[in-house]
Design a protein around this nucleic acid. Structure first.
Length: 279
DNA sequence: ACCCAGGCGGGCG
DNA sequence: CGCCCGCATGGG
């Protein structure tokens, strides 16, 4: 197991892992060490005092994977400057400085966010782990997140057995649609609006999930997913608690945070989740 | 026991 | 359009 060391600025592994993003739904983070398997390699990362220590059978792979996954080349100073448009956002950044929007495999992102609807983080994780156990490809380091092909024989009952409930039929359709009608790789060159539109052709994928995939699967930082927590937080902080329509909130976020709205969303979400009563 | 969860599809007015 | 309801399941 080769080792390497990185010293990324403005990066917090714990916040980035825990804040409801795809990797956090299945990777292991016990003992403050992150570990997961991908493309027949294993990746381990531990952060102590600003130093990010990596271990892997292929350190070249691990460096590239971690740098990409946690967007380590993002200029956070610039992003913080752009989205610090008010006191509440400044406080959110101060509190969770180093939290990154992660960049994940589009299929993996699509699956976990289909599971996420009307669900809680613990159950999303449990269901995801069961899918990996049932359908994941076995490697010498353990199982990996199942590809589209790995799901090709899956029936609705298999997804129910993994605890997906009413989302099971959505998964059946997503597997079929992404295998036969929509090549997720083809969306990489498209703008976030087209990405969103194409993904919403999948039964069970609406605006919020499509935004999550645009943001965390395709790296479109302007995407601004609005879930119940974002809605509550926006209404409470910026609209005196008055109920606002989704369209109104979308426009508000785009005007306020623009091309880095996705980052603003992630700080808002995690602050609201952890401190709603005091915001 | 009861409520709710990183929503969405479908039906109704 | 906008609004409202049901949905499977299990953690708190």
């Amino acid at each position: 197991m080769a080792q390497a060391m990185l010293k990324p600025k403005d990066f917090n592994l714990k916040y980035s892992f825990e804040s409801g993003q795809p990797l956090g739904f299945y990777a292991d983070f016990s003992g403050s060490a992150l570990s997961y398997n991908m493309r027949s390699h294993t990746v381990q990362a531990r952060q102590d005092a600003g130093v990010l220590n990596l271990k892997s059978d292929s350190i070249l792979f691990a460096k590239a994977e971690v740098s990409s996954r946690f967007r380590l080349s993002d200029n956070m100073e610039r992003i913080y400057n752009e989205i610090s448009t008010d006191r509440f956002m400044e406080q959110s950044i101060q509190k969770y400085r180093g939290l990154r929007v992660t960049l994940n495999d589009p299929w993996e992102t699509l699956v976990v966010f289909i599971i996420s609807q009307n669900n809680n983080i613990k159950r999303i994780r449990n269901s995801t782990l069961r899918l990996i156990e049932t359908f994941g490809r076995a490697t010498r380091f353990g199982k990996e997140f199942p590809s589209i092909a790995d799901f090709s024989g899956a029936a609705e009952s298999d997804f129910k057995a993994a605890g997906l409930g009413f989302r099971s039929r959505y998964m059946v359709h997503a597997v079929d649609y992404c295998a036969n009608n929509l090549d997720l790789r083809m969306l990489k060159n498209k703008d976030s609006c087209s990405i969103k539109q194409e993904l919403m052709q999948i039964t069970g994928v609406g605006g919020k999930i499509a935004d999550c995939v645009a943001l965390m699967g395709y790296g479109r930082l302007e995407a601004f997913p609005i879930d119940v927590w974002i809605k509550r937080a926006l209404e409470k902080v910026y609209f005196r608690g008055d109920a606002m329509s989704m369209d109104r909130l979308q426009d508000f976020a785009m005007d306020k945070w623009g091309k880095y709205a996705g980052y603003a969303q992630q700080y808002l979400y995690w602050n609201a989740r952890n401190n709603f009563s005091t915001i």
